[in-house]
Design a protein around this nucleic acid. Sequence first.
RNA 1: GGUCUGUUGGUGAAGUGGCUUAACACACCACCCUCUCAAGGUGGCAUUCACGGGUUCGAAACCCGUACAGACUACCA
Length: 553
Amino acid sequence: MNTKLQELADLMFPNVTKTIEDYEKMYPERDLKEGACVTRFAPSPTGFVHMGSLLSAFEDYKVAHDTNGVFCLRIEDTDQKRSVENGIQGILNDLKNFDITPDEGMISETESIGNYGPYIQSERMEIYHTFAKYLVLHDLAYPCFCTASELDETREIQELNKERIGYYGSFAKCRSLTIDEAIAKIKAGEEFVVRLKSPGNFNSKIVLHDEVRGDIEFPENDLDIVLIKSTDKLPTYHFAHLVDDHLMRTTHVMRGEEWIASFPIHDQLFSIFNFKKPKYAHLGLVMKIDETGTRRKLSKRKDKEASVEFYHKEGIPKEAVKLYLMTIANSNFEEWLDNNPKGDLNEFKFDFKKVSASGTLFDVSKLFNISKNYLSKQSAVEIYNNLLKWTEEFDKEFYDLLVKYKDYSINIFNIERENEKPRKDYISYKSIREFVFYMYDELFENIEYEQAKITDKEEIKKILDVYYNEYMDLNDKDNWFIKVKEMCDKLGYASNIKEYKKNPELFKGNVADVTGLIRVALTSKNNTPDLYEIQKLLDKTRIKERFEKYINC
RNA sequence: GGUCUGUUGGUGAAGUGGCUUAACACACCACCCUCUCAAGGUGGCAUUCACGGGUUCGAAACCCGUACAGACUACCA
């Protein structure tokens, strides 16, 4: 061993006490069944998850669970600027809202489970340094003393001369420093980063395999990338990826396509250490069309629909969000869902071959449609219980009414529900209130009536009177309507709409106008579910009250 | 400037050389059903797969160019 190199390495990493072999023993190969995948979701502790990352977390989770593998949550806090107070807990909560819980890794702000930790990168300092020291010792990495302004300067020169930008070849000044020079600078207290001494040649091609895109050809990496940063001595993403995913024995790295460009760097790093390479899947980005009509990556800052919390607040059932994410994730999922109406996601197997390589537009109307279908399949009791949970958090007034009128509420939700072709009008828990508010007297105060077809005050009074006193039969649905028609005939309204359409001038209106009037008087709305069922639930006394209220308004 | 990825209707997409006169789903439109609405039913919605060449008896699919979009090109991830 070169004693000079040893001296340099000791100077750069005075606190390293272990060797790579020690860590290999501490974190042995996992004893898993053939085909089991180890995946990981590795966010920065920013406190919340956005739709794109939720998708990839969900996919990671799915792949691990489909194969009886391990899904790990690792926190990437090597950039302290991105960290936020209680940021881990926030992420955990967002994930938990969608039933994504890690098998291994962080399970709270400070606690973790599993034998491959620590799972917070800032706590893995010594591990990174051990690996970096190894590289220095083997002349595969070196200290770089270039300042930010020096780096800016060379970039400007490169731009001016239309040369490739980066720290490579003759631009890699510190690469040619002698060991003695480097030692002297460190002893003089100069700040340094640790750079890879890249063995790559830009003119040689390599072919890398991506699980969703197939083989991709790249030039070899010849950039002397930064491995360890100067001020905090924390690793860069590239180096942390190598060390962590190797030691945690990750088998499948799934990440956004923004990482494709650094694929050659990562491959090179694994080659240098001769570590077994994980499989990579680069996922298409989740996009949106913005106001100017251009397609761009969904941004958590600008787009409210990008935040996962938004769906929770909107009351979109988490199951619906998962169903939607799965339709984005695998193109064969919708067809599968059609053939498996129960939609148990555990029975669907994620397939890398069915992942679209192009970025997907986030389609809120599709999500709403899925949510609507999902809600229509729930029983009235399930709706009640879930709505209770949602309102407890977001609509206290409605919550109190639900508690007070439990059975009555369940009956409301059951209007035209538990049958062959159930109603599909609720699109979210939040939307339910606007569909049923009129069933609660407490919410029927100070309401604005929609305009009914029949507007003449006297006529209205007459119809409602006659209806209430002579024709209202709530014992049987068919009878009810027969009586309504009888009344129409008596009062000069067509009981048969086809007849009416043939000769509208013979009538004052038709049966739809009459039921429309009753409907508005009872509910304030022109459009509601089945009128008979609504009347059944309201009962006679309240119907009378509402008729009077309407006549006097 | 360099490297890489992508491009099938308003959207998600199926499609791996002939079953494609381009599936399915969402959205939209029309009609039907109907006491209103939702649902449901029926039909419409790409004469064509970014564009231009080529290979082939035959191309959305293969090849070559071009265009456009996106990502990366940080001591950010």
